[in-house]
Nucleic acid binder design. Structure first.
Lengths: 158, 158
DNA sequence: CTACAACTTAAAGTTGACTTTAAGGCAAGG
DNA sequence: CCTTGCCTTAAAGTCAACTTTAAGTTGTAG
């Protein structure tokens, strides 16, 4: 049992020590045993952190990682856990891609089609389109989850 | 000059009044004239807000919107401003899409290929891959901006 | 006169995933 | 004994784009 310090672990998994302390605090890692107050880790901690790290790179939130670790019956195999989470994430990503594609289309149109001299002129056009669209949507009365995509997209883009 | 109240403007452009006050506070909107302390707006304010709104839907940050409004010489046409910003944003979106596609690929592989019983087993594999990759990267010594994509992606996914 | 709706402000809260700061503990080396 | 370096904690700060809250003002209706 190699008994690594936190900064050694941090170096090996490519995280900051503060992140590891944070994961412990929020219960993603079990409290590490202390030696005169200092955390000591063995390889299983390394593996746990590798999973967190990889999951984060795949776009999983820490809540989803928590689900991966603790949200299944104990007997559920790791492969099945991943499959469950991955399927959900893939669906999310597909939605995200659709949103991005739509936005790209609009951006390209904007680039080629906009002839406005002033932003005011532009704004007047947008404002009228806005209302036209709103009216059109009110007329159709179907809409389902419309508008959601761009909302979501705006969030995901920061 | 219709002299709209803030909530009337908010209704018309589909924003919350607090957002409009916020835009004024950060200098994205000029201070609205007050009538006994209350903001009054005309149509040009509507247009400005329509632009902000649309820009946000297209994934522009408020900093970018500020650039759209104030980051060009006065004589620069609106169409050219949009083209400049749109080009940058399109490049960003292309990067983002590449990142998402890469992640989707990994997720799909994970779904089909992972046979791990336990997360520990999984973590050990990931950890070793991690090191193998790191070693491989050190060996190649080219790398350019590698690793950037997933970093960026993690950020963009929240 | 009182109630009420709609507005005002400054300041604090929200979200997620951390990082940073402040104040201090502990062991080894000189 | 003192310094150095690494560790500890709780609490606060960061980012973006707002929203919410608390406390107060104004105009109108009954």
């Amino acid at each position: 049992m190699p008994e690594l310090t936190i900064s050694e672990v941090a170096r090996q998994v490519g995280l900051q020590a503060s992140a590891i302390r944070y994961y412990e605090r929020i219960g993603l890692l079990p409290p590490a045993p202390r030696i005169s107050g200092q955390r000591r880790y063995d390889t299983t901690a390394l593996y746990r952190l590798a999973i967190i790290q990889r999951a984060r790179q795949l776009g999983f939130t820490l809540t989803e990682v928590r689900h991966l670790f603790f949200g299944f019956r104990d007997i559920t195999r790791a492969s099945e856990r991943w499959r469950t989470l991955s399927q959900r994430k893939l669906a999310e990503l597909d939605d995200l891609m659709d949103g991005i594609k739509a936005v790209r289309g609009v951006l390209r149109k904007l680039m080629t089609k906009c002839q406005c001299d002033t932003l005011d002129q532009c704004g007047r056009g947008i404002f009228q389109n806005m209302n036209r669209d709103a009216v059109a949507r009110r007329a159709r009365r179907k809409s389902s989850t419309s508008g959601k995509i761009s909302d979501e997209f705006a969030n995901l883009m920061q």
